[in-house]
């Protein structure tokens, strides 16, 4: 059962993000349908054997159109920026952090709300991609393709955590430095690892995602204690 004050907090976040979430939902769904139709048409127009041959020799790749690898990160920006920017620019976040509730509870209610919203926005698009893959290709193609896509999804989650972390940082100088650090850390998720190869790098990416998730605690603590 969610306590009432957390429900109020979530409602506040919902008011800030609902139109951006709707926009993200429409765009990602429309683009994924467009991309799925493109894949199906290419498969049928080109001889299917030729399609497989080109796929296996690396001349075409699945679901790389429309910068698909960055969608999760873009959704994280679309949700994270309107969620945290007004709080930072008007220092309204002070009010939230000084509510008579444990800071960690407040911070993670806000962050988890945003994370769940990001998933909700991406879910229809991911389902379209998954259904297209499973309906058209055997497991030998589907599994490595999904293995290649997982770091991109983790990159989106990490990106969202870093937006929250940077937003909570009270000192502008450090905020700027954290943006640079976050940019370079996020690049690990978008390196071309080769089809299905990324499996060996999952532990590293997972550790980075967990640390990014915890990093919100560090800057919110600094904010709450009034670091100068």
């Amino acid at each position: 059962m969610i306590p009432l004050h957390i429900k109020h907090l979530i409602y506040k976040e919902w008011i800030k993000t609902r139109w951006y979430a709707t926009l993200g939902l429409i765009l990602t769904f429309a683009f994924s349908v467009y991309m799925a139709i493109g894949t199906v048409l290419t498969f049928h127009h080109m001889d299917s054997a030729m399609y497989y041959s080109m796929l296996m020799t690396g001349n075409i790749s699945l679901f790389t159109a429309l910068k698909f690898k960055y969608w999760a990160l873009l959704v994280a920006l679309l949700i994270g920026l309107p969620q945290f920017l007004p709080e930072v620019s008007h220092k309204r976040i002070r009010l939230t952090l000084h509510l008579p509730v444990d800071t960690t509870t407040i911070v993670y209610s806000t962050v988890l709300y945003g994370l769940i919203l990001c998933f909700a926005v991406l879910l229809p698009a991911l389902l379209v991609v998954l259904v297209t893959l499973v309906a058209m290709f055997p497991a030998e193609i589907v599994v490595p393709t999904l293995q290649t896509m997982l770091p991109w999804l983790l990159g989106g989650i990490t990106g969202y955590f870093f937006i929250a972390m940077i937003a909570f940082e009270p000192i502008a100088k450090f905020r700027f430095l954290y943006i640079i650090a976050a940019y370079f850390i996020l690049r690990f998720f978008y390196i071309s690892y080769g089809v299905g190869n990324a499996v060996t790098v999952y532990p590293l990416l997972l550790v980075i995602t967990i640390v990014a998730g915890l990093s919100v605690l560090y800057t919110s603590y600094r904010f709450n204690k009034g670091a100068r």
């Binding site: 650090a181 850390i185 640390v211 560090y218 603590y221």
Partner: peptide
């Protein structure tokens, strides 16, 4: 918080 800070430092060193 101290553990989180050390973890952030380690990730940054790796990067």
């Amino acid at each position: 918080i101290k553990i989180v800070r050390i973890l952030l430092i380690l990730v940054t060193i790796f990067t």
